[in-house]
């Protein structure tokens, strides 16, 4: 059966991609942010997983408001990086794993999750940036991806508890998939930020730092928070952190916090990451 090798939570701020594109990773503003990902890249290279499940939200690039899936799953063999309007980025296409994706979709529906199933779709910075941060810029990505889109833009967004439950199911799916492949699960988005309204620019460093430790040691706290709690604590767009719960729900109750990193502000966002492994 396939094996879960760990969970990653990371920001997916588009300015991170823009900073890489213009070679600004060593600039004063950005160096501390990118330096914190060096150990994470090393961990990923050492683990060398076959499949990355990436949980993220679209930002008006693959879905507009004409149709807003609460959850969507990619079942394609190939995902092109979308041009979001600032020009095409120099990134290789992402290879999918249609067999694993369809297996996941079957299990989701059997278990009363009912996602939109996407056979032809592009992926925006929500997937691109985490992949670049953890895998660098190889000629070809060393893993296949299974994209899961979560609506965090138009209300009603799914509850934190629902995201967690999808993670619990994802674990069962991975561990029942007839394959000897290894899987990493990456929950993305956050941390605290707010782009709109007069509270724009809101960053809650204290809550962000508590989250990075708490998502490892005390995840029930974050599982039990309401959507309103997320918005109030982390800002309207910081509520993206509910997507880390899919990753956390996938892991054991007791985990090792292998690495954490925080830097604020990255553009207008409290940015950072964790790497978790099950204790065994």
């Amino acid at each position: 059966m396939a094996k879960l090798i760990g969970g990653v939570g990371t920001s997916h701020v588009p300015s991170i991609g823009a900073a890489m594109d213009r070679g600004a990773t060593q600039d004063k503003d950005w160096k501390p942010f990118f330096d914190g990902y060096i150990p994470a890249k090393k961990w990923m290279a050492d683990k060398n997983p076959d499949i990355a499940v990436v949980i993220f939200n679209d930002h008006g690039n693959s879905f507009f408001l004409d149709r807003v899936p609460t959850f969507a799953v990619g079942v394609a063999e190939n995902y092109k990086p979308v041009d979001e309007g600032w020009g095409p980025r120099n990134l290789p296409d992402f290879k999918g794993d249609a067999d694993f994706s369809w297996y996941f979709v079957d299990k989701l529906v059997e278990n009363h999750f009912d996602p939109l199933v996407c056979s032809e779709i592009e992926v925006d910075h929500g997937l691109q940036v985490p992949m670049e941060l953890l895998f660098g810029h190889p000629d070809n990505w060393p893993v296949k991806v299974l994209p899961i889109w979560v609506n965090t833009v138009q209300y009603p967004i799914p509850t934190p508890q629902r995201c967690w439950d999808m993670g619990v199911l994802l674990r069962k799916v991975i561990e029942s998939y007839p394959s000897d492949e290894t899987v990493v699960v990456m929950g993305t988005g956050g941390l605290s930020h707010q782009l709109q309204g007069s509270r724009a620019g809101y960053i809650n460093r204290k809550a962000d730092l508590a989250y990075l430790d708490g998502i490892a040691a005390d995840p029930e706290k974050y599982r039990n928070m309401s959507r309103e709690d997320y918005v109030e604590t982390f800002g309207s767009e910081g509520a993206e952190l509910i997507m880390w719960l899919v990753m956390r729900g996938c892991m054991d109750k007791d985990v090792k916090l292998i690495h954490k990193h925080y830097h604020a502000p990255a553009s207008m966002t409290g940015a950072g990451m964790v790497i978790l492994e099950n204790k065994d």
């Binding site: 300015s15 833009v153 782009l195 709109q196 309204g197 620019g201 553009s267």
Partner: peptide, 23 residues
Amino acid sequence: LFFILKITAVDFIPITQVGAAQA
């Protein structure tokens, strides 16, 4: 913001400037 921000792909102003205007 996720949609109207694309206006800045024409204007090329930083998102922090949009944020400052919000605030």
